[in-house]
Design a protein around this nucleic acid. Structure first.
Length: 504
RNA sequence: GCACCCGUAGCUCAAUGGAUAGAGUACUUGGCUUCGAACCAAGGGGUUGGGGGUUCGAAUCCCUCCGGGUGCACCA
């Protein structure tokens, strides 16, 4: 994807063997350092609106690792399309109805909520999640309890029991509050929250209106026979034989609501790969009714997080959730910072930024779609190929810049007469090309790989000699390069959804 | 059984049909009185699951076999 920076066409692959001119390096360095706000942007999606849906947790259930994966990928994609000039709209779709709710409420009622009602939202939500898990086990094992929970499920739907209503309202509110805390930790802010409870009637109306045209009756249910349009697809139920809308129908309601509300040029949905086939069927049905939406719907999938050697528990021995993963990562950062001189508040902020970066990096370092093999000690890495490595390198570059200021040396993009070109220079200019590539394939890991290599080149440059040296006239250019690197890394980390603390 | 995704160094992963398939990790060794060592430098480690084909050129595209994951009617 050839592109021009200040009139100079940039090269494609194999850059490292290309002989680039000093004028080229000077132009690139100057472009980055004089206008860092514009660096790391493209005009590919200029004037477009892109809606990105991700995370999708369920109130009353724990925030799972899958939600963490979807969040890391979705947030990064949101920022990447934004960098390509689009207006990004972030959406979250949450399952606030269904059997899981009834299970949790049944157990909540059994235990009583008087004591937990005063707890902070995250602890109360944790307790609700435990209620759900315990009830799920009983639901499978005990037919009488199953019947009781099914009865509660009906009450949740028709709101016929005040006690159930109160438990539902409180539990939903507390769950959503707790999720909000997690989003804040992860650096996500959603523009829209959609709920299954509201999408069900919208979708049902559309399905009923298209019976005979798109949908058919079969064994008392309303189905869509997708294989008639594409032999690789299959039949799915949209309204079951009891007249209740299934998840497919809710998805139709959701998609149409999105287009009606925001009319995005592109609508991206990030989910686990299990939804892959199902989503193709739903999108086919939508495209028959609304052909104008067909090319605008995109689905990005991620795999599961699998655990090495059967170690399915967190550091504290509990079941691993998305939340516990972050907590565990933070604890390791606290241990690493033990000897450093920080205030308590700094410690908390740094631990969050570095811990989250370690987790996000482990998700965003590989192509989306495949499973991630997770071994806590190895995967949450703070050395080498890791999020903290990138943060550390950026902070170190900034420390050099600060020293330049105290020594009174101003950066200059003019390349000295005697100068041995570095890989850092040869690689910096490719940043925007990489962003374009990441957008084209909806793959954040291109940026991760690029930043990791860039950091490595900077560290080599850094260790090859002093950057700030008032006796050396080349110091000004070395500072400009350092500055160009710093801006690029800072911007790149932002695109991955990783925060950059001022120190660590 | 059918469909989709995947198989690359001991392990975890990269590689836009293009040059000697690269990183990290692990292992061995060297480097902090310096701008932050969460760092850097050096070393060994490969029949890209097997076999065929297309191409000037294949980890990448096609066929086949083997192995793994996921999905296939009233869950989400």
């Amino acid at each position: 994807m050839p592109k021009e920076i200040a009139g100079i066409e940039i090269a494609g692959p194999g850059f490292i063997n290309f002989k680039l001119s000093k004028e080229f390096f000077a132009t690139v360095t100057n472009a980055i350092t004089t206008n860092p706000e514009a660096w790391g942007t493209t005009t590919l999606l200029s004037g477009k609106k892109v809606m990105v849906e991700y995370t999708q947790p369920n109130p009353f259930k724990p925030f799972h690792i899958g939600h963490l994966m979807s969040n890391a990928i979705g947030e990064s994609l949101s920022r990447i399309v934004e960098a390509c000039g689009a207006k990004t709209v972030r959406a979250n779709y949450q399952g606030d109805v269904g059997p899981h709710v009834a299970k949790a409420i049944w157990m909540m009622r059994k235990k009583g909520i008087a004591e937990v009602q005063t707890l902070p939202a995250n602890l109360a939500a944790g307790w609700i999640g435990t209620c759900y898990s315990e009830a799920s086990t009983l639901y499978e094992e005990n037919p009488e309890i199953k019947a009781e929970i099914d009865a509660v499920n009906k009450q949740v739907y028709d709101r016929s029991n005040t006690e159930v209503n109160d438990l539902y309202d409180w539990g939903r509110k507390v769950s959503l509050e707790a999720f909000e805390g997690i989003y804040a930790t992860l650096g996500t802010r959603f523009d829209h929250y959609f709920f299954e409870s509201t999408m069900a009637p919208i979708g049902k109306e559309i399905v009923l209106a298209n019976i005979g045209k798109v949908f058919d009756e079969s064994n008392g249910a309303i189905v869509f026979q997708a294989q008639n349009y594409n032999p690789k697809l299959h039949t799915r139920v949209f309204i079951n034989s009891q007249g209740l809308p299934t998840y497919e129908t809710k998805e139709i309601g959701l998609t149409l609501t999105k287009f009606e509300k925001e009319n995005p040029d592109i609508s991206i949905v990030t989910t686990a790969i299990e939804q892959g086939e199902y989503m193709k069927v739903v999108q086919k049905a939508i495209s028959l009714m609304y052909p104008e939406y067909e090319s605008r719907m995109k689905h990005v999938t991620h795999g599961m997080m699998r655990f090495a050697s059967g170690k399915m528990s967190s550091r504290k021995g509990n079941v691993i959730t998305g939340e516990s993963l972050i907590t565990d990562a933070k604890e390791i950062v606290f241990e690493k910072m033990a000897e450093r001189d920080f205030t308590a508040q700094e410690r908390e902020e740094i631990a969050t930024a570095v811990g989250v970066s370690a987790v996000k990096y482990s998700i965003l370092r590989q192509a989306t779609g495949g499973d991630i093999l997770f071994d806590f000690e190895k995967s949450i890495s703070f050395e080498g190929d890791s999020g903290p490595y990138l943060q550390y390198t950026a902070i170190r570059a900034n420390a050099v810049l600060q020293k330049g200021i105290t020594e009174g040396i101003s950066p200059s993009s003019i390349v000295p007469d005697v100068w041995q070109e570095t890989n850092l220079e040869k690689y910096l200019y490719r940043f925007e090309e990489v962003i374009a590539h990441a957008y084209a394939e909806l793959q954040p890991h291109y940026i991760t790989t690029y930043l990791t290599e860039l950091a490595s080149y900077f560290n080599t440059f850094y260790s090859s000699g002093k950057i700030v040296d008032s006796t050396d006239p080349a110091s000004a250019y070395r500072l400009a390069l350092t500055q160009a690197f710093y801006f690029t890394m800072k911007r790149g980390l932002y695109l991955l959804g990783i925060a950059l603390p001022v120190k660590m």
